[in-house]
Amino acid sequence: MTEQPTPTVDDLREIAEQVWAAYLDPEGVRPFLVGEPGEPGTAVSASVSLTGGWHGHVVVSCSSGAARHAAAAFLAMEAGEVSDEDMTDVMGELANIVGGNVKSMLPAATAVSLPHVVAGADNRFPTTRRICELSGTWLDEPFSISMWQGRGLAEVPAA
């Protein structure tokens, strides 16, 4: 088996820059400021699961204020017009895009699940460990992108 590099926080940072340039901040005036995470108390978490060549999850979490801004930017709406459905859909799509880009760096047989969006921090991954996290603030709201790897990966035989 060839050694596959595991994505790092730098990879997450580059993917995030692309997502911001394309959708959340196309004008380059409202960057994601990586560094000190804002207040904890995450309100929305969107995740996709990766299975096959690599087992784990990519999670995008933020406050409801950030999710509202994200939906407004993504859908070209005013923040006041954004519905709960808009927020859920956009957070799911962000997780899908980040997860899809992470997948392209992993072994070929890896598949990405449909996105799953929940209120609050996503604690559904008891048998995983967090391998990297990009956290900071966007428009003064907490925002983070993290990767969780399933344990016992090495024992999973190749198909």
Binding site: Q18, V19, A21, A22, Y23, P26, N96, I97, G99, G100, N101, K103, S104, A108, V112
Partner: peptide, 28 residues
Amino acid sequence: VTTESEQSQIVRALAAGAHEYVIKPFTA
């Protein structure tokens, strides 16, 4: 229009008959 961006995946899509390919994320 997809996040699938491994070279082999793009080649598959072109072989299946896709004319062009845009990788997500993309700008307008």
